[in-house]
Simulated assay, not measured.
Amino acid sequence: MPEAYDLCLASASPRRLALLQQLGLRCQQYPVDLDESVLVGESPKDYVIRLAEEKATAGMQRSGTTLPVLGSDTSVVLGHNILGKPENEAHAIEMLMQLSGQSHQVMTAVAVCQNDQLRSVLSTTEVKFRTLTEQECRRYWHTGEPADKAGSYAIQGLAAIFVESVSGSYSNVVGLPLFETAQLLESFNIQILESD
């Protein structure tokens, strides 16, 4: 029954679902499949915002729900380059070696759509990696963890040992910035901490 849920999540991500559940929210998952190609001349910021908004809108249209629909997109950005999900082992190792000894940004856009309203927020976190060796990148790939992760790593998993420092929202790097998400949801009258 729809009234048992607080919102619809336009994603199959178990990480995003767990973060929303951490806020005490009951979510109905409704994954959407979109073309995630970067447009010519599109900045990383514009890219993640566009994808989050497209996911939220597609989730609302395809599910037919009257609940607020949350769409989100996370990208790892090194300089002006968006590092997406790895295509294979060689691609993953290449990305991890690019991140080795460098600071990069993790950008997550969160969009919420309900009826004719669409609002979005962007969170950016600075992450610094220690110097990595190709051998440990290869061993990390064989754990299976980086296969479906932007930038080929999961900060909440084994890749935590690569991270020298984090400046900004940690939950943003996991896949959903909880501070900004809570504020956005409250603008749609979803209260995180309800009074008795």
Rank of each mutant, 00 (worst) to 15 (best):
M1Y: 14
D6S: 00
L20G: 01
Q22A: 12
L23R: 03
L25H: 01
L25G: 01
R26T: 06
R26S: 08
C27P: 02
C27S: 03
Q28V: 06
Q29H: 03
Q29V: 03
P31G: 01
V32H: 05
V32G: 02
S37R: 13
V38R: 15
V38K: 15
L39K: 14
L39A: 12
R50M: 11
R50V: 10
E54M: 15
K55Q: 10
G64C: 10
T65M: 04
T66I: 11
L67E: 03
L67D: 01
S72D: 06
S72F: 03
S75E: 13
V76L: 05
V77Q: 05
G79Y: 10
H80R: 15
K85V: 09
E87Y: 13
A92W: 12
E94H: 15
M95T: 09
Q98D: 11
L99C: 07
L99P: 10
Q102T: 08
Q102R: 15
S103M: 13
A109T: 00
A111T: 02
A111M: 04
Q114V: 05
R119T: 02
V121D: 00
V121E: 02
S123L: 04
S123Y: 05
T124D: 07
T125N: 05
V127F: 03
K128R: 15
T131D: 15
T133R: 09
E134A: 13
E134C: 13
E136C: 09
C137I: 11
R138N: 14
R138S: 14
Y140V: 06
W141N: 07
H142N: 14
T143Q: 08
E145C: 07
P146K: 11
A150Y: 06
A154R: 04
Q156T: 07
G157V: 10
A159S: 09
A160N: 10
A160I: 07
F162R: 06
V163G: 06
E164D: 10
E164R: 11
V173F: 00
G175W: 00
P177K: 06
P177R: 06
L178V: 07
E180L: 08
T181L: 01
L184Y: 00
L185N: 06
E186L: 06
Q191K: 13
L193G: 10
E194M: 15
S195M: 13
D196A: 13
